[in-house]
Structures are given as C-alpha cells and as structure tokens.
Amino acid sequence: MSTPTITTETRPDPSASGNALTQRRSRPGEVAFRLAMQACLLIAFGVLAALLTWVLVKGWNRLDSRLWTEMPTGLVSRLDTAGVQSALVGTLWIISLVALICLPIGILSAIYLEEYADNTRWYNRLLELNIQNLAGVPSIIFGILGLGIIARALGLGFTVITAAIVLSLLVLPVVIIATREAIRAVPQSIRHASYALGATKWQTVSRQVLPSAVPGIATGSILALSRAIGEAAPLIVLGAVTFITFNPDGLDSGYTALPIQIYTFITRSQSEYTELAAGAIVLLLAIVLAMNSIAIFVRNRFEKRW
C-alpha cells in the first residue's frame, strides 16, 4: 500500500526547518484546536471544582464524627447534634450485598459469553445484544421493575435485600461488559500455550485466563459498585424511607441510603438541613473516591503487560 508515502508527504520534514517546534505552534488551526481542548477541560474541571467548593463551604461545620456517630432527628432544634448514621450504614449494607449478588453472577456470565459461548449461534448473539441494551436502560425502570416483581410479586417488601437485588440488576451489564473486556485482553497465546501443555478448558480458564484478567475485572467491578452507591432514583420507588433512626439489622429490615437522605434534606427549608446535606454529600463523595482509588490501585499494582 501507499500509506507510508502519504504520511511522509503530509508531515513536515523535521530536517527541513531549523525549529520544528515553534513552527508547529504558530499554525493558527493547531493553536485554536489546542485552546478548544483546554477550554473543554476547563469547563469540566470548573464545574466539578465549583460543586466541590460549594459542598465543602456549606458543609464545613458538619464535617466531623457527628456525621457517622449520630442518627438523624425529627426535631429542628436538635439538628446540630444529628448525623446520617442510619443512611451510611444502609448504604454500606446495600453495597456489600450488591457485591455479593452481582459480582459472581456478572463475572460467571462474562466467562461463559467470552470463553464458552459460540457466538455464531443466534441465541448467544441475542444475549449479547440484550446485555448491551440493558446497560442503557434508565435506572428508574429498574426501580419500577423491582417494585412490581421483587417487592410485591415475590413479596420481599421494601427491604434491604430488595434494594440490593435491584441495584445488582442495574449494574450487572456494566460488570459483564467490563469483565468481557478484561478477558478479551488476555492474549490468545496464553490459552494456546496452556492447551499445548495438556491443560483442559476449565484449567486454562481458571488458572491462566482469570488470574490474568483480575485487574480489569476488579477495576470494572469497583466502578460498577461506585455507580450503584450513588443511585437514588430506583430506591425512591423501592420504598427507601426518608426518616429512620435505626440501622438495618437484617435482610428484611427497612432502610435508607445516603443519596435518598441527601435528597430529602435538600428539600427541607431549614438551613440546618442544607448544611447536614452538604456534609452527607462530602461523606458520599469520600466513599466513592475511596472505591475508585482502590480500583486505580488494583489496576496499577496487578496490571500485566505482554
């Protein structure tokens, strides 16, 4: 093909000019493009910075241990000694259960689709298409589905386990897609080598492919859980209550979660509620940030290069 020739023709020859660097900068098109990119970055970063500054300033007085040691109160006069413990514990309950439910199902589904399924079969392709579609379904739809089927038809009620199942369904496609990407990134040569040494399919998958894919799977899974932790819409229809002064004590317990609590505090008119909401937002951001940091740590620490 003639591709190399074209490249040399369009690219300026560095040896032709004495200072290629300054020459490149002086091109108006390139300067404009660079400025446009920087502006985009600035917008994204600026909005985030403004948001963070707002919650930090608003919630500054509330950023202490009261947030997680104290329960919410129904008395405005006692709001300065109130916290969001029940919401924090509710969120931790839900997210732990989501991890227990959705990670095994998601990862095993992905292994099947990637290593075992014959994707020339129509039903496997249908499955794949559906998983891609499910990832784009608005979360409130999952909430309504959970209300009708899990809470009412299956009779699980408005409980922690209902919330966990629905959020698991919500992030399942994300886990499956991320895991498939990670498995696909393991070179075929590894599998071939394993087979060549006489390993069975199961031995190859469990001892070679999966361990190599762990960083990708872990990153994708943690990011999926981070998404689940911030979801409020499905929980609103799933009967997360807005005022609760006890922590969940079992799968069938009533609950609330941080996003719900923040939402209800914000809609209250008293300024004490706004402050408490800002404090809770910082707490939620800290949890998400911590989870994402774990994801980055796992990826950097265990990433394999071939």
């Binding site: 109160t73 129904g74 008395l75 005022f243 609760i244 006890f246």
Partner: peptide
C-alpha cells in the same frame, strides 16, 4: 405531615428505643 411524624418518632425513641419507627415521604 412528615415533620409531625418525625418529631413523634424522635420523642418516642426516648421512651421506647427498641421500636423502629421509619417515616417515608411518598
């Protein structure tokens, strides 16, 4: 009405802290 029920729940917890009162706002 929730502020009334929430205040009631908060007062009630002081006498019966074994009862779990939850208030939702649907």
């Amino acid at each position: 009405v929730a502020p009334l029920s929430e205040a009631a729940a908060t007062f009630y917890r002081e006498v019966q802290n074994g009862v779990n009162v939850s208030v939702g706002t649907s």
